[in-house]
Amino acid sequence: MKAMTLNAYGNDAPFDEAQISRPVVAAGQVLVRIKATSVNTIDTMIKDIGNDLPLSPELPAVLGMDFAGIVEEVGEGVTGFAKGDEVYGCAGGLAHLPGALAEFIPADARLIAHKPKALSMREAAALPLVGITAWEGLHRAGVAAGQTVLVQGGAGGVGHIAVQLARHIGAKVSATGTGDSQLSIIENYGAHAVDFMAEKIEDYITDHTGGAGFDAVFDTVGGANLTNSFAAAALNAHIVTTVALSELDLTPAHFKGLSLHIVFMLLPMLHDVRREVHGQILADLAKLVDTGKVKPLLDEQAFTLSQVGDAYARLQSGKAVGKVVVEV
């Protein structure tokens, strides 16, 4: 089969087109013919950092975690899927698991679900990693109807899904962004848009929570911005972050009694622990998509498999608006 492989790690390392052996489906797996795959920040980190990350695959490597496609073969013991089914998932591209930058992927059946009927393959491929991350974060924070929620980075990959899911739950949602385009995206998803560069924290706390602070803050920016999340939170609130790779003074969190939740959705893939939870989240997410509650945002630029290097560069440029997708 055709695949785009990495033979070295680094910023300038190219993807090379190669013919590699078509995977043999194992027990508990389905073989999926890939139709589309999306690029996530973790994919670019693996490519650029490589061996310094404990989750990077051995070279030559086939990256790509998210995918949408058609079941080609069903392995022994698999139920609920049949040849010809349209599916989506996040099931490879790290450690020992082959990725989706290829014509086929052998996917653990516990990590996939039937594709939302309302989405194209391209749209469905944009959803798994960010959708699962947003779902897990809101669940960990115990977000409920009537609560106030702040999403930091509400127009980003995880952020725009978190906004929609929190709205579906019935929370009163605000989200930060920069520039007219991001603020417009946030407003179109039904949240209060907060101009991160222009508005002071104390002002939007007053405007959107009556000065009490937010019951939950979902931070997709991380680093020093976590301090802003602490400042925006109510007493005994929940902070969710997807980016905690930093040293930080937790004093402000202590004096507010905050609960900090770090979401790293790759753990089931890396450690083969509770993988079925991801499959169930994707199945539930598909229902929300098909009833119009959630819709992924895609960047306007389209890429083919041979253009995957350009797709990675597009995401890293900071110019993409929505998820960057590669069609196979």
Rank of each mutant, 00 (worst) to 15 (best):
Q307M: 08
P54N: 07
T41Y: 12
I20K: 02
L267I: 11
N7M: 01
A193M: 05
V24P: 00
A253L: 15
K256I: 11
V149W: 13
Q19L: 05
L315P: 00
K115M: 07
D108A: 06
N11H: 08
L63E: 01
A102H: 12
L315Y: 03
A311H: 08
G213V: 10
F230Y: 15
A68C: 08
L101H: 15
A3N: 03
E247H: 09
I186M: 13
G159K: 02
D43N: 14
G137S: 04
V32Q: 01
H168R: 13
H254W: 15
C90L: 10
G211D: 01
E276K: 07
V273R: 07
L119M: 10
A193P: 15
A320C: 12
F230K: 02
A198C: 08
W135T: 05
G69I: 13
M265G: 05
D219A: 01
P60R: 00
H139R: 15
G28T: 07
V273M: 11
H160T: 06
P23N: 11
A232W: 08
Q280P: 00
N228A: 10
T133P: 00
T242A: 09
E187A: 15
R274V: 10
G309D: 15
I20A: 04
D85H: 11
A18S: 14
T5D: 01
G223E: 09
A26P: 00
Q307V: 06
T291N: 13
G77W: 11
D12V: 04
S306L: 04
K35T: 00
K35P: 00
A286D: 04
G157E: 13
T206M: 12
D180S: 11
G222S: 12
A118Q: 06
H114R: 10
A237D: 10
V143A: 04
V143R: 10
D299W: 03
T148L: 04
S174W: 10
P116V: 02
L94E: 14
D16P: 00
D12A: 14
A141E: 14
T178L: 03
A109T: 09
L59P: 13
G153L: 09
L248W: 12
A125L: 03
L127G: 02
M4K: 03
F214M: 06
V294S: 11
A102Q: 15
L55H: 14
L270R: 10
R33I: 01
D310I: 02
E199A: 05
A68K: 09
E72N: 15
G177H: 08
I70P: 00
T178G: 10
F196I: 03
E136I: 14
G322F: 07
E103K: 06
E247N: 12
E73M: 12
E73S: 12
A233V: 06
L138G: 13
S38A: 14
G210N: 13
